[in-house]
């Protein structure tokens, strides 16, 4: 059985790997290096013998603990290769300044987690990666991008959306926002794939304050404002008035309304 994780939830409950990951770890830990190499050649996530990234993280951590250089050298490049493939999509050239260097920095950051595993100010940080690798890596990536954008003092460079006239204002706005919410509900469908890129561009092209208002109200589900001073709303989250939120939503809707017929 794999070593227990030490990271705990806020209520003290220890983190537990998904059962499928535990099973894979038990199996992969017994493989010879040659057999492990063979398994690592499988890149299709749907293939039954494919080793999940959570399992690879565990193998590298165990290699680090036992100073097993050979195992680390076999497993870590495969894991990094998967991350690089991910980054080529999520931190694409042209979408952010100096994307290639940022991708490299994120890969280096990930390796640093293995170097500092069990020590430093966050010794069990990799426990997140043994439970939900892709979502943990998403956090690492978004944090790195967030800081890089802040450093460069530039917004993410996306295609400019033309200003569009909204003919019947209230109806068009409601329709645009209904489509935003709907877009998130139909994410996994093939139908969505056709609209994904233009919709993503439209959302990213919004000024940050408008994007934030749209996401908080129409995706995260916040009210614009509330008379109850205790209730968290989009206005309290953005530290502004409800009227400001509504103005931002109105401006955003005008820009997004072109998608009301496409989606």
């Amino acid at each position: 059985m794999a070593r227990l994780l030490t990271k705990t939830e806020s209520d003290g409950t220890p983190y537990i790997r998904p059962p499928g990951v535990e099973t894979q770890i038990d199996e992969a830990s017994k493989l010879s290096l040659a057999d492990l190499r063979g398994r690592l050649l499988i890149t299709d996530r749907a293939a039954p013998r494919h080793l999940r990234s959570e399992c690879l993280v565990h193998l590298v951590r165990e290699g680090r603990r036992s100073c097993d250089q050979a195992r680390m050298n076999v497993v870590l490049p495969i894991l990094l290769g998967r991350c690089e493939a991910n980054l080529r999509v999520t931190v694409a050239d042209g979408a952010i300044p100096d994307a290639a260097n940022l991708r490299q920095q994120i890969l280096d950051d990930l390796t640093e987690l293995f170097v500092m595993d069990g020590s430093g100010d966050f010794p069990d940080e990799l426990d997140f990666y043994e439970c939900k690798f892709n979502k943990a890596f998403r956090a690492l990536r978004i944090d790195a991008v967030r800081r890089a954008v802040r450093r460069s003092k530039r917004s993410i460079d996306v295609a400019e959306m033309p200003e569009l006239e909204v003919k019947s204002m209230p109806d068009a706005f409601e329709d645009a926002f209904a489509k935003v919410s709907e877009a998130f509900r139909v994410l996994p469908t093939q139908e969505w794939d056709a609209y994904r890129e233009p919709f993503l561009q439209a959302i990213e092209a919004l000024p940050p304050d408008e994007r934030e208002a749209v996401m908080l109200v129409h995706v995260l589900g916040y009210k614009e404002e509330s008379e109850d001073p205790e209730e968290e709303t989009a206005a309290t989250r953005c530290n502004c008035t409800g009227r400001t939120i509504r103005n931002r939503l109105t401006r955003a809707a005008a820009k997004l309304s072109r998608f009301k017929e496409d989606l």
């Binding site: 493939a85 999520t90 978004i142 998130f184 994410l187 794939d193 994904r196 959302i203 934030e212 953005c238």
Partner: peptide
């Protein structure tokens, strides 16, 4: 708040395109 918004926007990509790249 900023991070939650970034995750929500990021999720628009979906996993399929990343799976295909891997």
């Amino acid at each position: 708040t900023e991070f939650a918004v970034a995750i929500a926007v990021d999720s628009l990509r979906g996993d399929r395109i990343i799976e295909a790249a891997e």
